[in-house]
Structure formats: structure tokens, C-alpha cells
Design a protein around this nucleic acid. Structure first.
Lengths: 104, 104
DNA sequence: TGAACATATGAATATTCGTTCATATGTATT
DNA sequence: AATACATATGAACGAATATTCATATGTTCA
């Protein structure tokens, strides 16, 4: 069995590859990374996130929508506010792995 | 200490955020993901990678250049061929974490 | 040296993406 | 009801990106 066959066998199927790329796409924008760090351990309102991230309310809201569609964050409404938090434990692990990587 | 202060303190500095996003940017394209899976455990020539990935030689070469610039892959020349491999153990871990995430 | 092969590269193009601006929606307060 | 506040959303714009095509570079072999 040559290299090509072996590698082809172990290659994830097309759909998995796309999903995987899609997941990492969520983490490839600085604004989204900051947002996720905000709500990794505590939940936080959109306005507080906006302040910490240092972007506009609109930009943050747009990115939260993207993260929501990817099911990476969840939210609950409290009065006028909407409070977001990370909905998946893997996110922290993946961010940590990445952080470990760049710290070298 | 309120939420904003606490989160701001734990937020990676701007430069780290950008580097982190940059790292994940390398993994957010299906072609690059496939290429990395090809050379994760074995080294492989550009033409073999091209065949497995199912793209054009040019597209693969362009993406290998991107991965090379990000120092995620290394290469050696053998005759007419150039043989690439992953230069960082973290890549496999990060891909695995991502794969675990989407398998749910 | 010339032909064949392997890889790299530059320009062009189409698409995707993130932000901004203006405004809509929804909730609380007076 | 009117106002203020918090968030969401649509359109527009510019920047970034992946691919394709044509071709350049470099290597081997006859």
C-alpha cells in the first residue's frame, strides 16, 4: 500500500473537512476571538462585551450572530439586555491549544 | 471588581489575539485542512498531495506557500520533487480537538 | 543540449468577509 | 403614550482570499 492510498483512507470525508474548516473559521477573526475570551468563563451582556472588545455595538452584534449560528455561543434575555456565554467546552480547549502553539 | 475588569485582565494582549486568529486562519480552508491531513503523519510530495486533495497543482502549491509562511509545514527537496511535512506537533492536537467538537 | 517532468509564481477574477451607517425591534421607566 | 436604552439587522463598501491560467524556474535523463 503506497502513501497515497494510506493517506486517502485516513482522510476525513469531504463533509467533515468542511465542517472542521468551518469551525476554525469561527476562530480566525480577532474580534470573535476577543468576544469568546470575554464569555469563556462568565456570561456577559452585549454592551459589556462591546466595551471590553473595543469595537462598535453593531460589529459585536454581527459577530455574535455568526457565533450563534455556529452554535458556539448561547444567550438569555434579561430585561433590555441579552447575555451571552460560550455553549461548548471544546472552545476553551481549542483556544488553549492555539495559545500554547503561539507561545513558543 | 466587576465583570468587565476581570475579563479585561484575563484577555490576551492584542498581539496574542492577532497571532491566535492568524493560526486558526490557516485551518479555516478545506484545501489547507486536507493538505495538513495528508502530511500529518507522513511526508508527501506536492504531486501526491495534489492527487489526494483533488485540486490543481497550482492551488496546492499556493496553499503550501501560505502554510510555509506560517511555519506550519517544512519541506525538503529530493530530485525534482519537494516533499512536505507538518512541522508542528500542535497542529495534530488542534485538528483532533476540532474533529472531536464536530463529532457530536 | 534538449525534452520531459515537478514545482513555484504572478496576474486576474470572483467570492467571501468584517465593518460601518442608518434604522428597526423590543423592553423598561416616567 | 412618550422617551430612553439595549440589541439586532440590512445595505453598502472595501479588504482579503482561493482559484485559475499562463508561464517561469529548476531538475533529471536521454
Amino acid at each position: 500500500m503506497d502513501n497515497i492510498e494510506k493517506v486517502t483512507e485516513n482522510m476525513p470525508v469531504e463533509e467533515q473537512v468542511y465542517e472542521l474548516a468551518e469551525l476554525f473559521k469561527m476562530l480566525c477573526d480577532p474580534t470573535r476571538v476577543k468576544i469568546l475570551y470575554c464569555i469563556l468563563e462568565n456570561e456577559m451582556s452585549v454592551s459589556d462585551i462591546t466595551e471590553v472588545v473595543g469595537s462598535t455595538q453593531s460589529a459585536v452584534s454581527h459577530q455574535l450572530r455568526v457565533l450563534k449560528q455556529a452554535r458556539l455561543v448561547k444567550y438569555r434575555k434579561v430585561g433590555k439586555s441579552v447575555i451571552y456565554s460560550v455553549s461548548d467546552e471544546h472552545v476553551e480547549t481549542i483556544l488553549s491549544m492555539g495559545m500554547e502553539h503561539i507561545s513558543e
